[in-house]
Amino acid sequence: MRITVGVDGTRYTDEVEPRMLLVHYLRERLGKTGTVVGCDTSNCGACTVHLDGHSVKSCSVLAVQADGCEVTTVEGLARDGRMHPVQQAFHDNHALQCGFCTPGMIMQAIDLLADDPDPDDHAVRHGLEGNLCRCTGYQNIVRAVRDAASKMAPGAGPAAEQVSDSAITAREASHTGGGS
């Protein structure tokens, strides 16, 4: 089947097998290896990407289902050589150990913050519960998400301006009736 999909701001048209998973399309065809293959059963969340502004586990989505959609991977978050505020917060708060879950955690955290820009610890834990960290770095991950939220708050400075990420932009458009 022929699909056309936008990935990290670039449009791709490819022939894919109907059964090809989005995670394999991103990694094998497009070289987006930041999208990690974890469990292949949608249990771990390591493969989380944004599909039209909402987080999805790309091991549970067929590439053909992304036809006509916009996909953002962890590689597509940085702008002008600067990390996305959530990426920076994960770095600043040492919210990783082995790093395997980190891309999925970051993508899910951005989606969480689009829905709840000022979550408490409980809300962060609840919002990330579908993503697993085998190194048990949850304390630092929660701290990083809360730190990112504070830096992304209106009037928080340059980091707040960078939050033109596709997840938030698409979510705002859908809430105002101009969505995809």
Rank of each mutant, 00 (worst) to 15 (best):
G45R: 02
P119D: 04
H84A: 02
V86Y: 00
R29L: 07
A149Y: 01
D120Q: 06
D111G: 09
T176H: 14
R2E: 15
K32H: 14
D67F: 11
G155C: 12
N140W: 02
A149M: 11
Q162E: 15
V124K: 00
R29V: 07
T48E: 12
Q87N: 13
V74C: 02
M20P: 06
K32F: 12
T176I: 05
A66Q: 08
T10L: 15
L22G: 01
C47N: 02
Y138M: 08
A95V: 03
P154M: 11
T169V: 13
M105V: 12
M1G: 07
G104W: 06
L132P: 03
G68R: 11
M105S: 10
Q108K: 15
E75W: 04
F100C: 06
I106P: 00
R146M: 13
A109Q: 00
E161F: 09
L22W: 02
V49D: 05
R27S: 08
V49P: 01
V86E: 04
M83I: 10
V23N: 02
D116P: 01
R125S: 10
T33A: 09
D8K: 00
H24C: 06
M83V: 11
G9P: 12
G177D: 07
C59G: 02
D115F: 02
S55Y: 04
K32L: 14
R125V: 08
T169P: 04
A114Q: 02
C47V: 01
P154D: 13
A160R: 10
D80Y: 06
C133Y: 01
P158K: 14
Q65I: 10
I3P: 05
G68W: 07
G31T: 06
V163S: 00
E28N: 10
V5M: 09
P158R: 14
C44Y: 06
Q97D: 10
R2N: 14
C101V: 06
S55F: 03
V71C: 09
G104F: 04
L77N: 00
H175D: 11
H175R: 15
N140K: 14
L112M: 05
M152W: 04
L132Y: 04
V37L: 12
F100G: 07
D92E: 12
S58E: 06
D80I: 00
C133M: 01
V124F: 03
E129T: 07
L77D: 02
G81I: 13
T48H: 07
P85C: 07
D52T: 07
G137F: 01
H122C: 12
G76C: 02
L51M: 14
A170V: 05
A78E: 10
A78P: 05
D118W: 14
G157E: 13
V56C: 03
P154H: 06
A114N: 05
M152R: 03
C133D: 03
V64W: 02
S164G: 15
R82N: 15
D111K: 00
N131L: 05
V5T: 08
Q97K: 06
V5N: 03
L21Q: 12
L51E: 03
G6L: 12
P18L: 01
D80G: 10
D92L: 08
V5Y: 04
T13P: 12
A170D: 10
G178Q: 11
A144P: 01
A78L: 07
K57C: 04
G137S: 07
L77G: 01
C98N: 13
S42L: 11
D52Q: 08
V37M: 13
E161W: 10
